[in-house]
Simulated scan of single mutants.
Amino acid sequence: MNQHLRPEPVPFIDIASQRRRLGKTLDEAVAKVLAHCQFINGPEVAELEAALAKFSGARHVVTCASGTDALLMVLMAKGVGEGDAVLCPTFTFCATGEAVALTGATPVFVDVEEQTFNIDVHSLRRGIASARQRGLKPVAVIPVDLFGQSADHDAVAGVAAEEGLFVLDDAAQGFGASYKGRRLGTFGLATATSFFPAKPLGCFGDGGAIFTDDANLAETLRSIRVHGQGSDKYDNVRIGLTARLDTMQAAILIEKLKIFEDEIAARNRVAERYARGLGNVVTVPRLAEGCTSVWAQYTIRLPRGTNRDEFAAALKAQGVPTAIYYPKSMHQQQAYRGFPVAEGGVPVSERLSEDVISLPMHAYLDEATQARIIEAVRGAIAG
């Protein structure tokens, strides 16, 4: 192809279009912070926490510096540590298991369901048994609402109740989605989310939040995020972190939250068009009954025998970017190979790591551009 005729690249995630839509409202929000100069724990932080509580239905929201800190803070607040086991899916971003390892506890990796990519409760049960066989004490499970779709929270809660575990929902990719009519943020002991810029609700840097109905937990979390402080900053009553959300990021998120529901609806329209256009050539993601998704990623599975690298190269030549979440499940990565895996292994996760690939997904993907993506996918499969 002539270099001058090369197709204009499609954005994988289009933060610029959202920025243009918000326009002056973001400029004014940032200018307000620059004027009052309360860059740490300014008034916008409490305002954002109240808005997130209203949106999610959670009684308490504690914002923090990242999604990883959100997970870690809850584990710290619960005193999780050496000798404890925390069950989590292996087919997820490393932060899920990383937060566990940072406490000194042992992440025990379990498998996911083929259809939803979310935690498999049968593997969860086997993982709990495997942990006990190793002399570990299972204390918690971290289901992940992967790629934007809620995990099966009733099933997870049932196992957790039987086994005496608390549930920490990792909604870093799923915040804004719902399960059986309830928004994420109200399941389990606590829910952690991330506001990394690429997330459906993202800021312009790092950020995160914890949602809980437990007032005592919320109070402990607020202490942990500021070095474990008690009555003042020189009265530290526990080991803590520097894990506050910047006021500037809070101001930005307040404005983004106002258009979030509209963006979720747009993401679902994009997902529906993909399903219609690609459902007969690749395995498209499916929503479990009673679940909605915010489509943090639109992840397809390629037909058996398709060379994924060649497929990605064919799309790239058409100006269509792709990404692989995740080419290695956690138990396959160097840092995590020494941690236990549920009895029977994690065969679904290992298969997914070999054949998944994600297509551009955002609220500003117009029909013409999406038609171009669909055509490129169909052409690469046929070719």
Rank of each mutant, 00 (worst) to 15 (best):
D206I: 01
A215R: 14
L201W: 03
R225N: 11
V226L: 05
G185E: 11
A172D: 15
G207W: 02
A172L: 06
S178W: 14
Y179R: 12
E163I: 05
S178I: 08
R225L: 13
A209H: 11
L168F: 00
L165G: 08
V226M: 05
D214I: 00
F211H: 08
D170G: 05
G205Q: 03
G176Y: 12
A171M: 01
N216G: 07
L221N: 05
A171D: 07
E219M: 09
I239R: 14
R222A: 12
P197V: 06
N236C: 14
E163M: 11
F211K: 13
G240W: 12
F204G: 00
S178T: 14
L221S: 04
L165A: 08
Y234F: 15
T193Q: 11
A215C: 06
G207I: 00
D232P: 03
P200C: 02
D206A: 06
K233L: 09
A172K: 13
F211L: 12
F211S: 13
D214P: 01
A218S: 05
S194R: 15
A177D: 08
D214M: 00
D170L: 03
G230T: 00
V226S: 03
L184G: 05
P200I: 00
I224R: 12
T193G: 10
E219I: 02
A190I: 01
G188W: 04
A172F: 01
K180A: 15
A177L: 10
G240K: 11
F196D: 14
E219T: 14
T242I: 09
I224F: 08
R222Q: 14
L201I: 00
A190H: 06
K199Q: 13
K199F: 02
T220K: 15
L241E: 11
L241T: 07
A215S: 14
C203G: 12
T193W: 10
P200A: 04
I224H: 04
V237H: 08
S231I: 13
V226H: 03
T242F: 11
E163L: 09
A209I: 03
G176P: 06
Y234S: 12
Y234D: 15
A209W: 10
